[in-house]
């Protein structure tokens, strides 16, 4: 069932609790009473079309409204991706890290293993951070420059430099699998480690890892299926233009 603009926002969340962090990234807070999706979006100055496409794509893996998504302005996509980046680094990843640390503080004989898991997760975190920084420092400025060139049909000196130094293909190539480590960590925790005495906390870390992975997969779908194809098309038309 697809999420429609006339639905109550509360029902949307009841339908899929994984949307809670997604709407949060749009600055929408819970407690919306009986307001519809449209009403909530207007109130929070969120682009309704963009919101609907995103939550639907999130809610249903097979829903991929390429055409509708293609109509969403580039700067909106970039702004959304930046918000998700910030929420990964500031919330999700930090929370998991905290949980692992408190598990380590509790542990006695399992301490060694938990330290291993913590080291591993920290390694993952710095890889993810590096990946995100590259997107924010190189890829997004490039994407925005391409967008501006298309819009204004002019290449400023500044944009010319950015445009010539990079191409989205490069990004496609090194859009490497940061998720690999996450998968490994999960496998190790499930298959190879005897859980410590506080198994509740241990289990909740594993569940967090699953959720983070799911969220990241969705995030990369937006990048790979929406942003990149869009930019490839724009690059071509720039080359034809000038």
């Amino acid at each position: 069932m697809h999420i429609k603009e006339s639905m109550k926002m509360a029902d949307v969340i009841q339908m899929n609790y994984m949307l809670i962090p997604v709407i949060h990234r749009f600055g929408i807070e819970l407690g919306f009473g009986d307001k519809t999706v449209t009403e909530v979006c207007i109130e929070n100055e969120v682009d309704l079309n963009f919101f609907l496409q995103l939550v639907n794509a999130y809610h249903d893996q097979d829903y991929f409204p390429k055409e509708e998504l293609q109509t969403i302005p580039v700067h909106e996509i970039v702004a959304y991706l930046k918000m998700t980046h910030a929420s990964y680094l500031n919330n999700t990843v930090t929370e998991i890290e905290q949980k692992i640390k408190s598990l380590e503080l509790e542990g006695s004989e399992d301490k060694k293993y938990i330290a291993l898991i913590r080291n591993f997760f920290e390694g993952y975190k710095s890889e993810l951070t590096e990946h995100i920084m590259r997107e924010e420092d190189v890829v997004f400025p490039y994407v925005l420059a391409v967008d501006e060139i298309i819009k204004t049909e002019k290449i400023s000196e500044e944009n010319k430099e950015i445009f010539e130094q990079f191409s989205i293909e490069e990004y496609e190539e090194d859009h490497d699998d940061v998720e690999e480590k996450l998968l490994d960590l999960r496998t190790i925790m499930i298959k190879y480690v005897t859980p410590p005495s506080n198994s509740t906390l241990y289990h909740s870390i594993i569940q967090d890892l699953f959720r983070l992975e799911e969220d990241l997969n969705y995030h990369s779908r937006i990048e790979d299926k929406v942003l990149i194809p869009k930019i490839i098309l724009m690059e071509k038309s720039i080359q034809n233009l000038f």
């Binding site: 293993y113 291993l116 591993f120 690999e180 480590k181 490994d184 960590l185 496998t187 190790i188 190879y192």
Partner: peptide, 22 residues
Amino acid sequence: KLGIKSVSGLTVYAILNNLISM
């Protein structure tokens, strides 16, 4: 066999199984 791909994941496995020390 292990279901682990990354070098750091394999390292953790090796330590857990006493193939190498920390």
